[in-house]
């Protein structure tokens, strides 16, 4: 009987941990810009660390494209792209992906991915969070 209670408690704690750890990261407002005739696209949005400890984005991937976390840097009037293999987000802070700054770079995009692409974000603490990101054909200006 005690064994059953212990196992039940462990399962409950595991589920509780998974639910809470997933909530610690909030991914908001993502969209992908893919102009016609372009073979690469960028993804923009906000990743919030709502927990009380730092977390690290250790991977981004998709079955529909090669995905990288890039940062556009402008030096001496030249735009360069720098690849980041991980990104640490402090407690309560956000990683903002926007044009001419951090962005997801998508290449080798499947032809079947016309309206949206599923991206997996992998965090050291929060684990894997998969979201479906809509594809737009241009940036939206007000």
């Amino acid at each position: 009987m005690n064994k059953i209670i212990t196992i039940g408690l462990l399962i409950f704690l595991a589920i509780f941990y998974v639910i809470n750890s997933q909530k610690s990261i909030q991914i908001e407002g993502f969209y992908i810009v893919l102009p016609p005739s372009s073979k690469s696209a960028s993804g923009y949005g906000i990743i919030k660390n709502k927990s009380n400890k730092p977390d690290v984005l250790i991977g981004v991937s998709s079955d529909d494209a090669t995905v990288m976390l890039h940062q556009t840097q402008i030096h001496s009037n030249m735009a360069n792209m720098v690849h980041h293999s991980k990104f640490s987000i402090n407690a309560g802070n956000s990683l903002i992906l926007r044009p001419m700054s951090y962005h997801l770079m998508l290449t080798h995009i499947s032809k079947s991915a016309r309206h949206s692409i599923k991206i997996k974000f992998e965090f050291k603490n929060a684990g894997i969070i998969e979201i479906k990101i809509p594809i737009l054909d241009s940036h939206k200006y007000n």
Binding site: S38, A41, T72, M81, P99, M100, H103, H139, Y141
Partner: peptide, 17 residues
Amino acid sequence: YTNCSDICPFTLGYLQH
């Protein structure tokens, strides 16, 4: 270039605007 994923579409979007 057209395969530029970030700055070129943004620049042309800016010029369009």
